[in-house]
Design a protein around this nucleic acid. Structure first.
Length: 445
DNA sequence: TTTTGAGTTGTTCGA
DNA sequence: GTCGAACAACTCAAA
């Protein structure tokens, strides 16, 4: 059993498949530390992975074998050592993972072994939902309707009984990297379940609370889902008996995750390129000192800076802020969305290629269901609307803690606004909005 | 086959 | 202060 983005034992179809095939002969649980995947991840995601691996290993009674290297060599070599007929995995839907798995399957086949893919990290496998002619959807709402017609499957139940093979020489899970000030919650399958149950208790008010970054209104399950400590199929099953705006809205958010995975599966090139190239010839400014100011949370726009500083403090950013800061980079600083997407993938503990990439493309106007080009988030009014008491801003921007209420959103309006070293605005939003609209007009002809 | 209406996340302006 | 209109272009499904 080769684990990747499925670091759990419950509701795990591939683990059941491995146990069923082994039937008494034993299952060897393996994880491969692959530099190609570790490289783009910053300290918070790397530490999350390592902690999750330690927890998984404990769940497997210490039997998890951890080796480092190229999976196309490590996996066949390990399979040969234990004389496995098959290597079981949860299928990977991402471009790199699919190429990697093809290479591993070919290398295994050369020795007469099989790579057996069972399930995916999604409730419905990417590529399954289709229009009448077999093609995929490019708009969310029709996708969601068709997705509901297919319907999520039943969970696979608790961990299977299986004898675990052990004794092979591995590296073990490396020590955590320097977290550079990031604080992480507990990482484990049990913690994911506990978080989910806690969230379900308050899901009734999710529809309103999710818009408020000053509240803990979101599920905070993104990183758990990213590493498969809990599977969305489990979540859909628990939500099934619940009605009302809260559960409905959360279900829809999970379907967005499924939608973007489907789009990336059908268009692997959209990991690097514009999904819709019409705006590709748009004039971008090269990354400059302004991008550094954005990344470090010192643009002089409190809501933007609070969002970026939350990302540095927690390895996570509220969805509302992801939209606001992305809009600021693309439409106020006129920088290519791919620059921001890469920075997000470094810092975010939940950094998920499909959701991150297509979220950015949505903001930039190059993606599916893209935001209209003229929709430019105003960082001040967004703050006043969704953080009406300024609490979120003050939590992450100490230089503004002396400004009460929503005054924290506009220090320039107060005589002592800059008394504690908060930076001046790096650009004028109204002027840059006009500039962005002008650049869009150029490429629209 | 063609037409039509609806569609995650916003802002600004004028009445 | 509130409200509606305008700000495009395209996908998709239903009529």
């Amino acid at each position: 059993m080769w684990f990747r983005r499925d670091l759990r034992t419950a509701d795990h179809p591939a683990l059941h498949a491995a146990a069923a095939e082994a039937a008494g002969a034993g299952v060897l649980p393996l994880f491969v530390l692959d530099d190609a995947l570790l490289r783009p991840a910053g300290p918070s995601r790397t530490a999350w992975l390592f902690r999750s691996l330690r927890s998984l290993s404990a769940s497997l009674d210490g039997a998890l074998l951890v080796r480092r290297g190229d999976p196309a060599q490590v996996v066949p070599a390990t399979a040969a050592e234990v004389g496995a007929a098959s290597v079981h995995v949860t299928a990977d839907a991402n471009p790199y993972g699919r190429r990697r798995d093809e290479a591993v399957a070919a290398a295994l086949a050369a020795d007469g072994r099989r790579l057996v893919r069972t399930g995916t990290p999604y409730a419905i496998g990417p590529g399954t939902v289709r229009k009448a002619d077999g093609s995929g959807f490019a708009v969310f709402s029709p996708f969601a309707r068709a997705w509901a017609q297919v319907g999520p499957p039943r969970p696979a139940g608790p961990a299977p009984e299986a004898e675990l093979l052990r004794g092979l020489e591995g590296e073990g899970v490396p020590d955590d990297p320097d977290l550079e000030g990031v604080t992480l919650p507990e990482v484990s399958e049990a913690a994911a379940r506990a978080r989910w149950r806690q969230f379900l208790d308050g899901v009734g008010t999710y529809a309103e609370d999710r818009e408020r970054p000053d509240r803990t209104g979101t599920s905070s399950l993104s990183a758990h889902l990213k590493y498969g400590e809990v599977h969305p199929r489990t979540l859909f099953a628990d939500l099934a008996p619940l009605g009302g705006p809260g559960p409905e809205t959360f279900r829809t958010e999970l379907v967005w995750r499924e939608f973007y995975a489907d789009v990336l599966w059908r268009h692997p090139g959209s990991a690097r390129e514009h999904y819709r190239p019409e705006l590709g010839s748009m004039r971008f400014d090269p990354p400059s000192e302004l991008v550094a100011a954005w990344e470090e949370g010192r643009t002089g726009y409190p809501f933007v800076d609070a969002g970026m500083r939350q990302m540095h403090a927690e390895g996570w950013m509220h969805n509302r802020l992801r939209m606001v800061v992305a809009s600021f980079l693309v439409k106020d600083l006129h920088v290519d969305w791919r620059v921001g997407a890469r920075i997000f993938m470094h810092w975010l503990r939940d950094g998920d290629l499909a959701s991150n990439n297509h979220g950015w493309q949505w903001v930039a106007g190059t993606g599916t269901d893209a935001a209209p080009y003229f929709r430019v988030f105003n960082p001040v009014t967004q703050g006043q609307k969704f953080d009406p008491d300024g609490e979120y801003v003050r939590r992450y921007v100490p230089e503004l803690r002396h400004l009460p209420g929503k005054k924290a959103h506009a220090p320039w309006e107060h005589p002592d606004g800059y008394a504690h070293g908060y930076p001046q605005r790096v650009v004028d939003h109204a002027a840059e909005r006009e500039e962005a609209l002008a650049r869009y007009a150029e490429v629209r002809g």
